[in-house]
Design a protein around this nucleic acid. Structure first.
Length: 477
RNA sequence: GGGAUUGUCGGCUAGCUUGGUUUAGGCUUCGAGGUUUGGGACCUUGCGACCCAGGUUCAAAUCCUGGCAGUCCCA
């Protein structure tokens, strides 16, 4: 046996974040590398999180009259090229299939606007057909050449993409924001990750969109991570795909469209934000198994303890407890379940039996509590809610502490170097944005928060002319 | 596109400088048996590797050339 304790991870989060993260993901059995470069295997521990996100989100969008559907993985090149900005934007990362029998190449979808809108052009004839709201769950391929990272940047990933189409710009604007707010709610309520809603700059908007809104979170290593986007596509795709409807006025009109997406990337953010040196920390609302019961079995009391452990398991059924009776030492099991992030551990041994109690250990603080059998359900419920709240509060505090306002480039550069999320007055000029990126070590505009001050007194952080907005800048994933 | 660097059991690695007692060693994982079990237990035992192709040599994991694969810089 080696002398050092093998507990937790070998790399510390604070000391070497970029090695800590892949070790965390692999040891927690969230994902593994595959033999295909840039592609990963999502293992059950992480896939159950994705399923939870799917179930939650399906319920939410059903209330917004969105229906699920599925469109092909392959997109004919001619469709792909119809909207030129869109085609140009995705060009570097599209994977193609050469098709010998037919003349046309097929793109493996990097996003599905074009294949979906081809159908919309056939389905939509009258204002009575609008609005049309569809969502699909699927995979997309973006052939990254840069370094890939588990969950955060892989060549293939899972997501949902919603595609809605409306009569008026007002309706489209309004709902584009509704979906963005849904994403915020999902991140905050389910994943315990605080996010900032905002609008992307012209430079960073979706290729082919009128404008893009996003929710952004901030990682412990000082990089921003885009969690989801909602685009108002304007009428550009409608014109390119000849989607028209006859209005009440008996005239032809182009409709307005939006699209919105959230991917498995959020699982990476979840691991980064809440994880610690012991492993993953799952917010209770996203955990499938909220509890693990570890019986401490000595020969003499073995049967009594097992019986009680089973009773507890049945009593707490709604939390999907795991009863771990495998032939490992208790300490081994403690470490294993902490690595995997189960919110609460229940220990039950001879000492507990005597006192008619269990030992509860919460994953976020790892503090022990002793709870009488009779109070168990109530206390568990309270503890789970408290863990959820605590994780969100900690992440919010981190975000707040690491966001700073700057008025000039020196301060901006320093803040970026210090791994901060920077708020700065900005003129919205793309040239300034490029310069900032050049001079501040690759920091990009993150988004322009929806929450803006009533008036902006300071001048643009770069060119010192009148600033139009307060914009977020940071290095990003 | 240019440069640097690395390929050894499932994972981490020792050995390479100076070729030879190495049956390629260790830790971990995995399998079996036993003793254990309140923070990754112990003993016994088993399975398991030199990226590929040439070359140099009496002798190559080790040196040379090429290929393939990875990683990191630079443009």
């Amino acid at each position: 046996m080696s002398k050092q304790s093998k507990q937790g991870l070998t790399v510390k989060k604070d000391e070497n974040f970029s090695e800590w993260y892949p070790e965390l993901i692999q040891k927690a059995e969230f994902a593994d590398y595959s033999s295909v470069k840039g592609c990963m295997i999502i293992r059950p521990n992480a896939y159950s999180i994705w399923e939870k996100i799917q179930n939650y989100f399906n319920q939410r969008i059903e209330k917004l009259n969105v229906k699920n559907a599925y469109f092909p993985l392959f997109i004919p090149e001619s469709f792909f090229k119809k909207e030129s900005e869109h085609a140009q934007g995705f060009k570097p990362e599209v994977a193609w299939i050469e098709n010998k029998e037919e003349s046309e190449r097929l793109a493996i979808r990097p996003t599905s606007e074009t294949i979906i809108y081809d159908s919309y052009s056939k389905w939509i004839r009258s204002h009575r057909d609008l609005p049309l709201r569809l969502n699909q769950w699927g995979n997309v391929v973006r052939w990254e050449t840069k370094a890939t990272r588990l969950f955060l940047r892989t060549r293939e990933f899972l997501w949902q993409e919603g595609h809605c189409i409306y009569e008026t710009k007002e309706e489209c604007d309004k709902e584009t924001l509704i979906y963005l707010k849904e994403y915020k709610k999902l991140c905050e309520d389910l994943l315990a990750i605080p996010v900032i809603m905002g609008k992307k700059t012209e430079k960073e908007k979706f290729a082919g969109a009128l404008y893009t809104t996003s929710i952004e979170s901030f990682m412990p290593d000082g990089k921003a991570l885009q969690m989801a986007t909602s685009h108002n596509l304007g009428q550009g795709f409608a014109k390119a795909f000849n989607i028209k409807y006859l209005g009440k006025d008996e005239k032809e009109h182009y409709p307005w469209q939006n699209s919105w997406g959230l991917s498995t990337r959020t699982i990476g953010a979840l691991a980064m934000i809440h994880g610690d040196d012991q492993g993953i920390v799952l917010p209770p609302n996203i955990a499938y198994n909220k509890i693990v019961i570890v019986p401490i079995l000595f020969d003499k009391d073995k049967e009594k303890i097992l019986k009680k452990a089973n009773e507890i398991k049945i009593k707490l059924k709604k939390y999907n407890p795991i009863l771990d009776i495998r032939d490992y030492s208790p300490g081994w099991k403690f470490n294993e379940w902490e690595l995997k992030g189960i919110p609460i551990r229940i220990e039950l041994g001879p000492k507990d039996m005597q006192k008619k109690q269990v030992t509860l250990v919460r994953r976020d603080t790892r503090k022990k509590e002793f709870v009488k059998f009779s109070n168990l359900s109530k206390d568990i419920d309270k503890m789970l809610k408290d863990i959820q709240k605590n994780l969100f509060n900690n992440a919010s505090k981190f975000l707040e502490l690491n966001t700073i306002y700057v008025k000039n480039m020196d301060d901006l550069k320093r803040a970026i170097k210090n791994k901060k999320l920077v708020k700065a007055p900005f003129c919205l000029n793309t040239k300034c944005e490029d310069k900032i990126k050049d001079e501040a070590d690759g920091a990009k505009s993150i988004n322009i928060p929806l929450d803006q001050p009533k008036s902006i007194k300071d001048n643009c952080v770069y060119c010192n002319t009148k600033a139009k907005v307060i914009c977020l800048f940071a290095k990003s994933y």
